[in-house]
Design a protein around this nucleic acid. Structure first.
Length: 640
RNA sequence: GCUGGUGUAGCUCAGCUGGUAGAGCAACGCACUCGUAAUGCGUAGGUCAACGGUUCGAAUCCGUUCACCAGCUCCA
């Protein structure tokens, strides 16, 4: 007998071997129906599995993340069964649940067409409704499982098994489909109620480009049709916000085939947006104690040999031939900043030195990785390098973090996720710097995060070879994450360039170097901003803040004189004087997502007013022109 | 870079199994002089991504290249 207590408050003693399902019998009907799995002492189990140890049993129900995870995984198995039935000779790779749904990777001759996917989805529903299916779990010794999957010709599963440390493994059967799987799965296949297969894509076996290319099918699954339709709506919403569509549509930016992939053309309106960001950025950096600098776009390859980029980053660099010498189009700003630092000998009294640059860099990114503004070949980093003493480390990291927070929130990003990437102590040989350096740096990064008392994820082994880092991922208006801020230590370059400072004892020591980009790159940041606001930028960022619309010809002079006044107040305003119907011009202004439309006919002209139509709040009624100007200026100044 | 898909007028797209291209919007012209998300009529606009091949004949079939999309990988 073991003693267990349910998180509903029930305590009882049951014989070991009782299925968890039996524990639920006394619970209210709706709770039982909702139960997907149980968690005992942090481990998650199927309802069909048996109680072995006593302890706290937490019931995982439909609403939770974990339940969705299980559902996605179960749906992936059902999909695999459907694929097996429809296409026969299939090798199965893996089929996990992911943040955004689930997928399964298959190896087969045929390439899936959209019709195939529809057929698979249909078969899944038939199997669910008529197949009388159940997930059946079976534990077996590893070598037995190897025999089983070898017999089935499932070589990927055999490979996975061979790499597993465990003595005993579990398999799950669903109809004729047998999978190596630790589970758990939903207790009833009928729970796979609301799902949709979304897309197909290629994926390498184990993410290794030297291995087999598999076919992946992505899908999404929920416990109710309502949740599914919400998710599908969210995906539609994401499409509506796509900066690659909005950019050209709003006259912000575009990428030209004639120039090549990953190279951005900033149109007049997009450049206004960019210029506002740059101006604000520079002003804030000076306030925060940075010196703003500018360095060349190309430099002799010797510089890149010294930094190590020439050897280790070569495939990403554009190398050009000059007059008898080789030049590199800069992929990073750090060596240039170091040259400025090295222009004189620094004492500990000078530190920290903070050099900031809106540094435009070029990297030869692989063609398949290019993606709108989010992944380009030429981009401007909002870069800075901080040179400091070990004692200053913590304070500098803290102020970087604070600065990033301040910048991001002023652009409307109130939420972000924090990731701390640290070294893997077992692989010290692949890192630059000493264990002591790493300990010190990681401790200060950690302290800076903890001081802010916010949740974060620590990822061991994710640090780059030259130092640990903090990354901030912005969460946008519809909950998606975007890489922005990165604060990184560098133990490599100070040694390579021999950059030092003189201590109070008169000794020369290597400086500590922090590399940080707060917005990330202007391109990516503006892409992210565009999607966050769906192109409806707040007043201080909107390229056109107001448009003046006369009803008819006789109101043109009035509108012209008011336009001058509005512009004189520093508002970016235009007038649409075309001889089109007012409805037509309003529609165009709406589609251009201009925050304010100021409409004037005879009545307004007489009274010195405009009828104000706000993109966000609709028609606000007539107001005196001076009053309107004051309100708009206030909205701009408060960055609302 | 890899897998799959796509590339037709400024934009969104139609064009079946090969017989040298069509719509809507935009542009331009004319008429209308207009009150809060599209007034009507007309005109012009394309070496069908580029190059090569098959064919009597290619937007359509094949090959190569470029670009884009969904991913893999990579990353600001």
């Amino acid at each position: 007998m073991v003693e267990i207590s349910l998180n509903t408050g029930v305590r009882k003693e049951v014989p070991a071997g009782t299925p968890f399902m039996a524990l639920l019998e006394e619970l209210p009907e709706e709770m039982r129906r909702d139960a997907v799995a149980v968690k005992v002492n942090g481990r998650i189990f199927d309802l069909r599995q048996a109680v072995t140890d006593g302890g706290e049993v937490e019931i995982v129900t439909g609403g939770s993340e974990e339940a969705l995870d299980i559902l996605g995984h179960s749906t992936a198995h059902l999909m695999a069964l459907a694929v097996m039935e429809l296409f026969g000779d299939v090798k199965f790779a893996i089929g996990p649940s992911i943040e955004d749904g689930f997928y399964y990777d298959f190896l087969l001759e045929r390439t899936f067409t959209p019709e195939d996917v529809a057929a698979i989805e249909k078969r899944m529903r038939t199997l669910r409704d008529e197949g009388n299916l159940e997930f059946v779990r079976e534990d077996m010794p590893k070598d037995e499982a190897i025999k089983l999957f070898t017999g089935l010709g499932q070589t990927f599963k055999v490979e996975l098994l061979n790499d597993l440390e465990a003595e005993t493994v579990s398999i799950y059967r669903l109809g004729g489909f047998t999978d190596l799987c630790s589970g758990p799965h939903v207790p009833d296949i009928k729970m796979v109620r609301a799902f949709k297969l979304l897309s197909t894509a290629g994926a390498y076996w184990r993410g290794d480009e030297k291995r087999e290319m598999l076919q992946r099918i992505y899908g999404t699954a929920f416990f109710s049709e309502e949740d599914l339709s919400k998710d599908l709506t969210r995906r539609e919403e994401a499409k509506r916000r796509d900066h690659r569509i909005l950019g050209p549509q709003l006259g912000l930016f575009d990428i030209k085939e004639e120039a090549g992939g990953g190279l951005v053309f900033w149109y007049p309106k997009g450049y206004i947006l960019r210029e506002i960001i740059e101006t604000y950025w520079k002003a804030e950096h000076r306030k925060a104690g940075y010196d703003v600098i500018l360095t060349p776009h190309i430099a002799r390859s010797e510089l890149w040999k010294a930094s190590g980029h020439y050897e280790y980053y070569r495939e990403n660099m554009y190398i050009i031939q000059g007059e008898g010498q080789e030049l590199v189009l800069k992929p990073m700003n750090c060596p240039a900043h170091i040259l400025i630092y090295k222009s004189k000998l620094h004492s500990y009294r000078d530190l920290p030195v903070r050099y900031a640059e809106l540094g435009t860099v070029y990297r030869n990114e692989r063609s398949g990785t290019l993606h709108g503004l989010l992944r380009v070949r030429g981009f401007t980093q909002d870069d800075a390098h901080i040179f400091c003493t070990p004692e200053q480390l913590l304070e500098e990291v803290e102020s970087c973090f604070e600065f990033a927070h301040q910048l991001l929130t002023s652009f409307g990003f109130d939420n972000y996720k924090v990731e701390l990437s640290v070294h893997d102590p077992d692989q010290m040989e692949k890192y630059a710097g000493t264990e002591e350096d790493w300990q010190k740096a990681e401790a200060s990064l950690l302290a800076a995060i903890e001081k802010r008392d916010i949740p974060f994820r620590k990822i061991i082994g994710e640090a780059v070879f030259y130092g640990p880092k903090i990354d901030l991922k912005l969460i946008d208006a519809i909950g998606r994450g975007w890489q922005a801020t990165t604060i990184q230590f560098d133990f490599n370059l100070p040694r390579r360039f021999d950059i030092v400072y003189v201590t109070s004892e008169g000794k020369r020591e290597y400086v500590y170097m922090i590399h940080r980009a707060l917005l990330g790159s202007l391109e990516r940041f503006i892409g992210t901003l565009t999607e966050h606001y769906a192109g409806e930028f707040p007043m201080w960022l909107a390229p056109v803040q107001a448009i003046l619309l006369p009803i008819g010809l006789e109101h043109h002079d009035y509108v012209r004189s008011c336009l001058e006044k509005v512009r004189a107040a520093g508002i970016r305003a235009e007038a649409d004087l075309r001889e089109e119907k007012i409805g037509y011009r309003i529609r165009e202004a709406e589609l251009q997502k201009i925050p304010y439309m100021l409409v004037a006919g005879s009545k307004e002209m007489e009274e010195g007013t405009f009828d104000v139509r706000s993109k966000a709040r609709g028609r606000l009624g007539a107001k005196k022109i001076d009053e309107i100007i004051a309100e708009l200026v206030d909205e701009i100044d408060t960055k609302a």
